[in-house]
Write a protein that binds this DNA or RNA. Structure first.
Lengths: 343, 343
DNA sequence: CTGAAAGCGCTAACAC
DNA sequence: GTGTTAGCGCTTTCAG
């Protein structure tokens, strides 16, 4: 894939060409292009005709140069393949488009790149007016983020300790909701299948789980650590299924792991929710089609993306950044949870 | 979300500022910024120091204006929320980044927009050197695509009849693989759960299914039409489960609908694959964690994105476009398929 | 090795 | 209503 810069780009008609063709000044063409009112109708028509004939399209690079803005926001992603990241990105792109901004993807293949001044600094060379960093659930927020100093930055993540503008779902509240739901159903032995050590989201959910258990005077069995994938859920689920004193419920930190856990329980022949209940987190699009339909904590990623974009745009406009925002979650009860077995 | 254009953008140090600070000409700064060789080491060091102090970042708008290129490719998406689209986009972004291009998202909220000359024409104003159109599985390729004339365009879709450069997985071959797999297992009554009428992918798969059945001298029951969602799979699955003469196998046009179909079969108490076999299409990340693990046709979306990007970049470089590409698929056999029941 | 001049395409500000 | 001028930040070209 060579990028021969010596190859001239396909020539496009410029404003001058149109002006010449229509027999007017470049300025008039500009006025027509920007649909300003002070152009005589017949002149406008003539110019429009010329634009059409020549296939004229305004050059946004020139516009950007003039205005000092790119009307584009950059989104740094580590791996889009996480459900939440994708939905958030989706919402960001839509919100940005509504505001007349485009969204530029800045994929960071190797997370450690972020620590390299050069690599991350280069983000600022991108034609963007601000940056949204959608933290991967698997990557720690790098300390070196200062490097973006100069460009407005919004982080979508759970680590409130970072000195940046954070938008996220209220993970703690969600985990509390899920845990309390199980407790209310009479479950006492509840195993938590958590995300990886490095993830702040995982940590938040884990801590909230532990806290809620404690508040109910319940002893939490050792927390199991997965990596968010369904495959890790299967492994951990089998581990649970092999224990001598099976729990009556499992709270998985995301739906994919919950799916894997249920898979392992089916293998073992356990009834869900008759023998064991399972709760997930995310409320994935397919959660209702899992077998059984999964009770899960709904995260409003669309809202997260929207708020993050709104926040960034207001920062770009030079306004003071509002305090960090936490989008509330809600529990969607389906068929994978029931009162604890009595045996 | 106002966009007050009168608010001046935050000032950044320009090449002039650096030049003044370092006591050299702007030209020299430019040379240093582009790491050209003909600068004396101490001059270079002085300039670099000034750049650092002032936090200088080259303005890509100006560069773009000079070079006539944006080093960015636009990706038009209708809805990212489809598995394939997301993975393809991911691969496009990575490939583009490797080639030094950024990826600009051009979300089209309302597909009918495409028919409006103005809306689609505006894509060309975007700061992109070419466009990849990832057709939604739910949207018909508009006839009006001619409107992009002027910008290199690659379409990721299955409609070979369009006069554009197409990259896609080999849907027909995949559907044949799935159908033949069931036939080889002795299934004779196979129901196909297809995607929506408007989708070319769905049509391709449906036709290949029908053709393969015919070639095996098997009569295909009426095809059921879903909308790709797991929810529609549940509805259709219940319909199948209610029939007086149940099929021995179902071939769903995507994994999500297969998940829904299996959900309905579980409800009915049917054993999978003991009583009925199910095959999906996509090989979703979680397919192996479904219950039972789903046999599915693997689509290499990563390769599709890569090839589409490579194709577009070569077109941007003014090279002749190679013929349309079809990426082969392969069948991943798991636990949801078994020999047909004999009863 | 370094600098000065010109111009990429566009638009704000000012003529007429 | 329309045209002219100037300049956004950078790089290519040509002089020194």
């Amino acid at each position: 894939m060579t990028n021969d810069l010596s190859t001239p780009p396909r020539s496009r008609a410029s404003i001058k060409d149109v002006a010449a063709h229509a027999g007017v000044s470049a300025q008039t063409v500009s006025r027509v292009a920007n649909s300003q009112s002070n152009v005589r109708p017949d002149t406008r028509d003539r110019v429009m005709a010329s634009m059409k004939v020549l296939g004229y399209r305004p050059n946004s690079a020139a516009r950007n140069l003039k205005s000092g803005r790119f009307r584009s926001i950059g989104v740094v992603t580590f791996n889009l393949t996480t459900l939440g990241n994708e939905r958030t990105l989706d919402a960001v792109a839509e919100s940005a488009a509504e505001a007349g901004y485009t969204t530029t993807l800045l994929p960071v293949l190797d997370p450690t790149q972020l620590d390299v001044a050069g690599a991350f600094g280069r983000l600022e060379e991108q034609a963007v007016d601000g940056i949204i960093l959608i933290m991967s659930a698997q990557v720690e927020a790098p300390e070196k983020l200062q490097l973006t100093a100069g460009l407005p930055l919004v982080i979508v993540d759970s680590d409130g300790s970072q000195p940046y503008n954070i938008v996220d779902t209220n993970q703690e509240q969600g985990a509390r909701l899920a845990t309390q739901h199980l407790i209310d159903l009479g479950h006492q032995k509840i195993v938590h299948v958590s995300g990886p050590e490095s993830s702040f989201s995982a940590k938040r959910r884990r801590e909230a789980f532990l806290h809620t258990m404690k508040a109910a005077n319940l002893q939490a069995p050792p927390v199991l650590l997965g990596d968010w994938t369904a495959a890790s859920g299967i492994v951990l689920g089998r581990q649970i299924a092999a224990s001598s004193q099976p729990p009556t419920a499992v709270f998985a930190a995301n739906d994919q792991m919950a799916l894997g856990v249920m898979h392992a329980f089916h293998e073992k022949g356990w009834q869900i929710p008759g023998y064991v209940s399972v709760v997930g987190f995310d409320d994935a699009e397919d959660a209702a089609a899992y077998w059984p339909a999964l009770t899960s904590v709904h995260q409003n990623f669309g809202e997260v993306g929207k708020r993050a974009t709104a926040l960034l745009l207001s920062m770009i406009d030079g306004q003071d950044a509002p305090p960090n925002e936490l989008i509330p979650t809600n529990l969607v009860v389906r068929d994978s949870t029931a009162p604890a077995r009595t045996s």
